[in-house]
Computed example of a mutant assay.
Amino acid sequence: MRRINWYSIRLVMVFFVMIFLYSFSSKRNSVRKINKIDIQFDSKENMFLTHQMVNNLLIQNLGDASRLQKDKVDLNTLENELSHHEMIEKAEVFSTIDGFLNTRITQKTPILRVISDNDSYYLDRKGDRISLSTNFSARVPLVVGEISKEKRKSYLKLFNEIKKDDFLSKNITGAQIMPSGNMVLTNRSFDYKIAFGKPINVQKKLRNYKAFFHHAIKDTLIKEYKEINLMFTQQVVCKK
């Protein structure tokens, strides 16, 4: 008489039980309703948006989230809608087993604020426009004048260099774009103007300015300077 292999039978039974439990839990999870929206920002800086503003954006696309089943929520659509907001650089949306809809927001980081005759706005490191916010005012250089789309890339290079340098980001407070395209920068510490010229040879000019400042700060004459000219890349010309 053939002997029954109970070990194999138990394995098969365990396998089918696991499939049943997985199917059962998946079904229950899919019909579970969204019971809470959790919103987190990746940084406490540049808080253009509030939790309530993001929550409102989600509700506009979700409707009454408390009545929605998890499997009815299109996470990709939500991410795309949030990511297209002018103040958001990146958005991640995902749900959890306990019915939480989690949203992670990376806000855009402004590097300058443009003030023209009829408009005022921020630009981020990529050149994307950010409208002014009633919730937050970024501490970035104020640029007076027009930045055309054709020349935007060269200006962005200058202000990105300023932004990533600890000394320059604290020292350079503003700029004026002249009709010729030349720029005059202002600094936080003294009354002199910085004749930067056109936004070319940016890194060389900024290195020259830093070298000048760290040397001149040791001399009381720096208070008498009216203009620091960086247009000649081989030297810094100072005028009293």
Rank of each mutant, 00 (worst) to 15 (best):
M1L: 09
R3W: 02
N5S: 06
I9Q: 06
R10I: 09
M13L: 13
M18N: 03
M18P: 03
L21V: 14
S26K: 05
V31G: 08
Q40G: 10
N46A: 09
T50N: 02
I59F: 09
I59R: 10
N61S: 12
R67P: 04
L68R: 03
D74A: 03
N80V: 07
L82C: 05
H85I: 09
E86K: 05
E92G: 10
E92R: 11
V93H: 05
S95V: 12
T96V: 01
G99D: 02
L101P: 10
L101H: 01
T103Y: 04
V114S: 02
D119N: 07
D119P: 00
S120R: 05
Y122H: 03
Y122N: 06
R129E: 13
L132N: 03
T134L: 09
L142S: 10
V144K: 15
S148E: 11
R152I: 11
L156C: 08
F159Y: 09
K163Y: 14
K164N: 13
D166V: 13
F167I: 05
T173Q: 02
Q176V: 14
S180Y: 08
N182I: 10
M183Q: 04
T186S: 15
F190C: 02
I194A: 11
A195I: 11
F196K: 01
P199I: 05
I200A: 13
K204L: 06
K205Y: 08
K205T: 01
R207G: 03
R207N: 12
N208Y: 12
A211S: 10
H214T: 10
A216H: 07
K218M: 14
D219I: 11
D219G: 08
D219L: 15
K226T: 04
I228M: 08
N229H: 01
N229Q: 01
M231Q: 08
F232N: 00
F232G: 01
Q234C: 05
Q235C: 04
V236K: 07
V237G: 04
C238H: 00
K239S: 13
